[in-house]
Write a protein that binds this DNA or RNA. Sequence first.
DNA 1: GTGGTCTAGACCACA
DNA 2: GTGGTCTAGACCACC
Lengths: 124, 124, 124, 124
Amino acid sequence: MILRIEEGIDIPIYQQIRNQIIYGISSGALEAGEQLPTVRALAAEIGVNAMTISKAYQILKAEGYIVTERKRGARVREKIAGSKKLSLTNQRELKRIISEAKLSGMGRADFTRVVDRIYEEVDS
Amino acid sequence: MILRIEEGIDIPIYQQIRNQIIYGISSGALEAGEQLPTVRALAAEIGVNAMTISKAYQILKAEGYIVTERKRGARVREKIAGSKKLSLTNQRELKRIISEAKLSGMGRADFTRVVDRIYEEVDS
Amino acid sequence: MILRIEEGIDIPIYQQIRNQIIYGISSGALEAGEQLPTVRALAAEIGVNAMTISKAYQILKAEGYIVTERKRGARVREKIAGSKKLSLTNQRELKRIISEAKLSGMGRADFTRVVDRIYEEVDS
Amino acid sequence: MILRIEEGIDIPIYQQIRNQIIYGISSGALEAGEQLPTVRALAAEIGVNAMTISKAYQILKAEGYIVTERKRGARVREKIAGSKKLSLTNQRELKRIISEAKLSGMGRADFTRVVDRIYEEVDS
DNA sequence: GTGGTCTAGACCACA
DNA sequence: GTGGTCTAGACCACC
């Protein structure tokens, strides 16, 4: 599991970390119950402050994706609660993306093809 | 064509305006070549600073969605460049959304159903 | 609206601030839409670091009690979403409190009396 | 009397043990004068460090819920001091919970209903 | 001038 | 040795 942080982009580092870990869980690269790197270790590895990692972990914890315990560190949650719905924020984002896709000339079939490709990537 | 600015949400106002205009073009509410309100008129209408509108228009122009001419103001571009591809940013966002959807228990069919619903909304 | 931070207690400062603001909203001391102190002003007033206040505001924002905007600062949300249920955490806490109350000799009526008293305090 | 330690929750293990024993006494599962398991036995049973159990017992002793005697181990106290009042800490917690309940749209009757339900659970 | 992000330190409770 | 909290600074985007 390798995290890559992009610099020339305006997504906060802690969000990028949060997103990458979600990719990892979703794709199976991180298994249920699997141990995550310690805050300090991950901070050293990607060269950021420990608080930045801590913030990412706290978000993931608040969202129900991981659990953290004092002595044991952070682990992927065994059972992640499934609402089976997109958040309002994600619905809004998806609408924006689809609007832009349509303006770029992509039809519904083209878009679905992209979705399928990503699904396979994530659905290893 | 009515612009609705949501407050209590983290998207900058100029981005919201940019997005809404894209929805408008995508859905046909704004036609190719159609005149957009002047910066000052739109600023007055939705009660924000003129600089904010100006910034939104500049972005839309840089992205190739509108053209601005001296004295005549801004118009929707006649032929919007069709790359038929998602931008890297949008691909990344879509991947994030799909990852979260999958973790929430949505299968590929569930997701495609949401896409279809939004497509119809935008494609009205 | 005065915030009082207690020191000899192991509740994190940002939590205490979060709680006090919730008391304020619940009791009506803080009205819907009312402006909260700026992060820096409140930090100076109670003598803590600005990040500590910021963290409290972010929690309140994530919980849907307040909204924050770049230029306008933080305000009490106009319509606070009502689940009409206690969180699991609060149910667990309430169970613990009731157990301890019972062991101290309080009957159900005694406990209800305390609840009523607090309700009036909060329900000004 | 079975102790269940929940993981993925922010309450320290020694506190969870302390709370569960209080539930037990309150509900009658543990009777006055009843012998508690030895520190080592309980530690082995639920798979935690003996120090953790010891800390829980020390707290319960300091709070007056149990007594410890040389050689004989720990027992539930015969007569638990009945102040018939909530501790200041519990009053504060209850106030917080009621404030949150009220903001979630629960009226006093709704809250009392929850209290009643828990009372029956604890009062079995 | 606002909230948001980030750093480089520090101390603490838990186990 | 872990995550959690806190400080005192700094810079940034937004408006």
